[in-house]
Nucleic acid binder design. Structure first.
Length: 271
DNA sequence: ACTTCGACCTGTTGGC
DNA sequence: TGCCAACAGGTCGAAG
C-alpha cells in the first residue's frame, strides 16, 4: 500500500490528533508483525505523551520523552484515528488509546509492517542507519544519483527503489518517474548520464509532491487517517495501465518484471 | 560491494 | 460456484 506520499498523508492526518496527547493504554490483539511487538513497548508507552510525529522514508517516528515509537506500514498497513465505539475489525492489531478518548488504531492484513519501541540514538538504529537521502530534501540531487550509480549494472528502476540510494520511492512512483523522465526502467543504472539523472531527480520530486498534494494513491483500500481515499490514481500514467495506450504516443504500454516487481513502461517514449 | 532470491502474511483476481 | 495459482503498494537478510 504505502509509498512515501501515503505515509506522509498518514503522518499529516494523525499529527493534530496525537501531538501533545497522552497514551492511557495500549491494546495488543496481534503482536506478530514483521517483528514481534515487544513487552517493553506495551509496558513503557502508556503514560507517555507524544511530542513529535516525524517521518523518515516510509517510517513514522512518534516521539515521546523516553523513547520513540517507530512504525512501518509494510504493504497493507494503515493508521486511523477512531473513537471508542468503532467496531474492531479482523486486522485491527493495535489500539493506542489517548487521553481524549480517541484511539490511534493500527490495521494491517498482511502484517508486513512493524511497530518498534526505540530508546536512544534513533539515527543509528539498524533500520534507519543506512537510509539514503529524503527525495524531497536538498541532499537528493541528480549528482547524488549519478555518483552512486557508477559501475552498477542493476536496472535503474531497482536502483531508485533501493532505500540506501534514496528513500520512499516504491513500485508505483518509480514507474511513474521513469516514464516522466523518458528513461527505460531496464537501463543499467551505471550507464545513465548525469543529465538524465538530473531530469530523473526532478521527476521523482515532482511526482511525490503531486501525490502528497492529492492525498496519496488509493489502489484498492488506502485511506488517510480519517478514512478518505487519495486521488492520485487518476494521475498515474503507466502504473496499472499495461496494454493501454501510452498517453504520449498512443502505443500500448508494455509490462515486464524487474527485481520481482511488475513494471509498466512505454518502449517508444522511454529509452 | 553488489545482486538475486526467498521469506514474511492475507486478500483479491482471473482462469479453468 | 468452487478451486487454485498468481499477484499485490515493502524490504530484510542470507547466499552467491
Amino acid at each position: 500500500m504505502p509509498e512515501l506520499p501515503e505515509v506522509e498523508t498518514t503522518r499529516r492526518g494523525i499529527l493534530p490528533h496525537i501531538k501533545s496527547r497522552r497514551v492511557t493504554k495500549i491494546i495488543l490483539r496481534q503482536e506478530k508483525l514483521r517483528w514481534p511487538i515487544t513487552p517493553a513497548l506495551a509496558k513503557e508507552l502508556p503514560g507517555q505523551t507524544f511530542r513529535s510525529v516525524k517521518r523518515r522514508g516510509k517510517y513514522l517516528l512518534l516521539g515521546t520523552d523516553i523513547g520513540t515509537l517507530l512504525i512501518h506500514l509494510g504493504m497493507s498497513g494503515s493508521l486511523r484515528i477512531v473513537d471508542q465505539k468503532r467496531p474492531v475489525g479482523k486486522h485491527d492489531h493495535v489500539d493506542i488509546v489517548l487521553d481524549d478518548g480517541h484511539i490511534l488504531r493500527y490495521t494491517d492484513p498482511r502484517r508486513f509492517g512493524c511497530m518498534l519501541w526505540l530508546q536512544s540514538d534513533i539515527e543509528s538504529h539498524p533500520l534507519l542507519r543506512s537510509l539514503g537521502p529524503e527525495p524531497l530534501g536538498s541532499q537528493f540531487t541528480g549528482v547524488h544519483l549519478f555518483d552512486r550509480s557508477r559501475k552498477r549494472v542493476a536496472a535503474i528502476k531497482s536502483f531508485i527503489m533501493d532505500s540506501r540510494i534514496v528513500v520512499g520511492v516504491g513500485n508505483i512512483y518509480a514507474s511513474e518517474a521513469l516514464f516522466l523522465s523518458g528513461i527505460s526502467p531496464k537501463r543499467a543504472a551505471g550507464k545513465v548520464s548525469l543529465r538524465r539523472y538530473q531530469k530523473l531527480a526532478e521527476c521523482i520530486r515532482q511526482i511525490l509532491q503531486q501525490a502528497i498534494k492529492a492525498g496519496g494513491t488509493t489502489l484498492r483500500d488506502f485511506t488517510d487517517s480519517n478514512g478518505n481515499p487519495g486521488y492520485f490514481k487518476q494521475s498515474l500514467r503507466v502504473y496499472g495501465r499495461a496494454g493501454l495506450p501510452c498517453m504520449t504516443c498512443k502505443k500500448p504500454l508494455k509490462e515486464i518484471r524487474l527485481g520481482q516487481r511488475s513494471t509498466v513502461y512505454c518502449s517508444t517514449c522511454q529509452t
